[in-house]
């Protein structure tokens, strides 16, 4: 039960039920689709980058489990106002946190550290990282959908 509580922390359940920035962005200039064929999770990320390469707006639509929805929701909150380079750096930190590789920096991760419990559930890692991979694809304006497989 303890590791379940570590996984499904209050803040994750809250974001899973009430995702933030769950909408389309009319002014988006970067979008990408993500898909997990194993569980059917789908996400579409909308990014609006300003001329200086700063994330002016980021939001999403789609359907997924609590982990993937919360991860996407909290990612959008974390990335608003960040530069491209900062967004990529945060992806690296988050990836390290989920996969248990390297030494994630808790200060850089901030609230995202609540996802540390996912490490104990390796078959849920893709739920937590789908949005992040999709975000990276959006930054690069990749046309083909991102798949976890």
């Amino acid at each position: 039960m303890d590791d379940l509580r570590d996984l499904y922390q209050e803040v994750i359940l809250d974001h899973g039920k009430h995702p933030r920035n769950f909408r389309k962005a009319p002014a988006a200039n970067r979008t990408a689709h993500g898909y997990n064929p194993l569980c059917g999770d789908q996400v579409e990320i909308f990014l609006e980058l300003d001329e200086g390469g700063v994330v002016k707006d980021i939001c999403f639509q789609g359907s997924g489990c609590a982990i993937s929805t919360a991860s996407t929701s909290m990612m959008t909150q974390a990335l608003k106002g960040k530069t491209l380079a900062q967004a990529r750096a945060l992806f690296e930190e988050f990836h390290a946190l989920i996969t248990g590789t390297g030494e994630p920096d808790p200060e850089k991760l901030g609230k995202l550290a609540v996802f540390s419990g996912v490490r104990e559930f390796p078959n849920r890692a893709k739920c937590a990282t789908l949005a992040w991979h999709t975000m990276c694809a959006a930054l690069e304006n990749r046309a083909e959908p991102v798949s976890t497989e």
């Binding site: 039960m1 996984l7 569980c39 489990c65 609590a66 982990i67 559930f121 849920r124």
Partner: peptide, 14 residues
């Protein structure tokens, strides 16, 4: 209602 099957699967697995 309100709970994704994937989350059900993880909790049952435990």
């Amino acid at each position: 209602e309100g709970i994704h099957p994937h989350d059900i699967g993880t909790i049952l697995d435990r």
